[in-house]
Nucleic acid binder design. Structure first.
Lengths: 149, 149
DNA sequence: TATTGTTATACTCTATAACTATA
DNA sequence: TATAGTTATAGAGTATAACAATA
C-alpha cells in the first residue's frame, strides 16, 4: 500500500505554488528598479554567456524567439542590452549587456539576496543540492522530445 | 569551505526551469481541450472546495481578485463554471463547477497523467514526499509577511 | 532547403485604481 | 470602516504564421 499517493498527486501544484511565490517576491523586489523577474532572468543569461544570439537566448530561458525579441526590444530601450550583427553569420545578431546593464544586474542581484536567503534558510546546504538536482531531473525529463511516444 | 556555493545560487533558476517545463508541457497537453494550464489549476481548486467565493479562489491559486474574475468570465463563457449569489453575504458570489466543468476536469486530469508520470519517474515515492515538503516550506517562507522586516 | 530574425496579430495573465454595494 | 466584486485600463509574456535575408 502506497502511503504517499495523496501527496504525490500534488507535486505539480506544489511546484507551481513555490515558483509563484518566488516570482511574486522577485517582482516586488525589482519593481522599484523598473525590471521584471523575467527580464532579470534574461539579463542573467546574458551575463553568463556573452554575445549570445537571440535563438540561443530563447533556448536558455526556455522561451520563444519572438518572445525574446519583444523582451530585448524593451531592454534595449532601457539601454541595458545592445544588439550587434554577428561576426560570421550575417543573419544572426549577437546580444550583450551594456555597461549600464551590468551595473543594473549587480543591483538586482543584491535586491534579490534576501529572497534567496529565505529560500536557503528552509534547508541545509546538502538538502539544497539534492533539491536542485531533483528539479533539474524533472526539467530534463519534461523537456525530452515526445515525438517517439 | 562550502562546496555547494555555486549550486546554491542556482536554486531560483532551477525552480523556474522546472516550473516552466511543467507549464509548457501542460499547455501543450491541454491545447486541444481549449483550456490553459492556469485555468486548469483554477478548475482543480474549485473541485476541491465547492462553492468558494472569488476572493477565496484568488488566495488558493495565489492570484489577484481581478485576475481571477477575468479567468472566471472566460470559464463561464465556456460553461465550465457558474457563479451564484452567496447565501448569507450578498456582496459575495459563490463559484462552482458545472456538470460540464466536472467532465472537462476529468478529461484534463487524464490528459495530464503522462506528465505526472514522467515527473514521478525521476524519483522514489519517498523522494517525492521530501520534495513536496521542501517546496511547501519554500512557499510558506516566501509567503510570510515582510512587514516586520 | 533550413535557419535567423522580424513583423503582425491575438490571447491570457497580471495588476492598479476608482467605483458600487453590502457588512 | 472594511470587504466583495466590478470596471477600465495598461503592460508583459506567449505564441503562431508569413515574410525577408542569408547559410
Amino acid at each position: 500500500m502506497k502511503e504517499s499517493t495523496q501527496q504525490e498527486r500534488e507535486l505539480p501544484l506544489a511546484l507551481r505554488a513555490a515558483y509563484m511565490a518566488l516570482h511574486r517576491n522577485t517582482e516586488a523586489a525589482f519593481a522599484q528598479h523598473g525590471v521584471t523577474a523575467d527580464q532579470f532572468v534574461l539579463l542573467l543569461a546574458l551575463s553568463e554567456g556573452q554575445a549570445l544570439t537571440q535563438r540561443e537566448l530563447a533556448d536558455r530561458i526556455s522561451s520563444d524567439p519572438s518572445t525574446v525579441r519583444a523582451m530585448l526590444v524593451l531592454l534595449e530601450k532601457m539601454e541595458l542590452i545592445q544588439r550587434a550583427s554577428h561576426p560570421t553569420d550575417s543573419r544572426a545578431k549577437t546580444v550583450a549587456l551594456t555597461a549600464s546593464g551590468k551595473r543594473k544586474l549587480r543591483k538586482l542581484w543584491k535586491a534579490g539576496q534576501s529572497i534567496r536567503d529565505e529560500m536557503y534558510r528552509c534547508m541545509t546546504p546538502d538538502e539544497v543540492d539534492t533539491l536542485i538536482c531533483q528539479l533539474r531531473n524533472i526539467t530534463s525529463t519534461l523537456n525530452q522530445e515526445k515525438s517517439l511516444v
